[in-house]
Design a protein around this nucleic acid. Structure first.
Length: 198
DNA sequence: TAGGCGATGCTCT
DNA sequence: GAGCATCGCCTAG
């Protein structure tokens, strides 16, 4: 499969708009072991001044990538055992990001299986922890520039334009009522309770 | 299908 | 010491 990289000007520099625009786009990871790629089907926006955002309390060592220029990767450890992958989304110094929550696997399914242990194709990238595991994402890739990097990058949509739905974000307690989760309607690869994806 | 809960290690208070 | 942008396994219905 040929993936056409996204470049400067292809994506909005605005957190909620970016979270919506990324639905349908492709995430690609190239390694010596092979290539994995998936269609982004679910995202969440963490805006400047958002009490639920890791950037809310200010810049720290862990969240420094959120304060970098747009489209840098912010990858952090959660619950002691999983990694989550975000895209920095505002001008340098602002502190915001888009969490990528689920992908529809397009290429490298066997490699994803090797990284994940046995898992049904539908479950390989359904949820932020699982997609990070399937793509082998960890702290080493934190801070990569996703429009320039050779190993981890964003590419153009493959297939039909998505129908995008919104809902509350999953797994947070503060500012939980804001509808900042975006997902592809009808996709079997979206995470979360069914009640959030009608 | 839904809900409860333990695993596990940072980060922040 | 509490809380956490999660997941997988268990039970109940």
């Amino acid at each position: 499969m040929i993936f056409e990289r996204l470049g400067e000007g292809d994506l909005p520099i605005h957190t909620a708009r970016l979270a919506r625009a990324l639905i349908g786009c492709t995430l690609v990871r190239e390694t010596a072991a092979g290539r994995t790629a998936g269609r982004i089907v679910e995202t969440e926006a963490y805006e400047p001044g958002d009490p639920a955002s890791h950037a809310y309390a200010g810049k720290r060592e862990r969240n420094a990538s959120m304060f970098r220029a747009p489209f840098h990767a912010y990858i952090y450890r959660i619950y002691g055992m999983y990694w989550c992958f975000n895209v920095a989304s505002e001008p340098e110094g602002e502190g915001a990001g888009v969490l990528i929550r689920a992908l529809e696997p397009l290429e490298g399914i066997e490699l994803m299986r090797e990284r994940s242990g046995s898992a049904a194709p539908r479950d390989l990238c359904r949820g932020p922890g699982r997609l990070a595991r399937a793509f082998g994402l960890d702290r080493l890739l934190d801070g990569r520039a996703l429009l320039l990097d050779e190993e981890l990058y964003l590419a153009r949509r493959v297939g039909a334009p998505p129908r995008v739905g919104t809902s509350r974000r999953i797994g947070i307690s503060r500012a939980a009522e804001r509808r900042l989760r975006f997902y592809e309607r009808g996709s079997l690869f979206v995470s979360g309770p069914r009640s959030l994806s009608p």
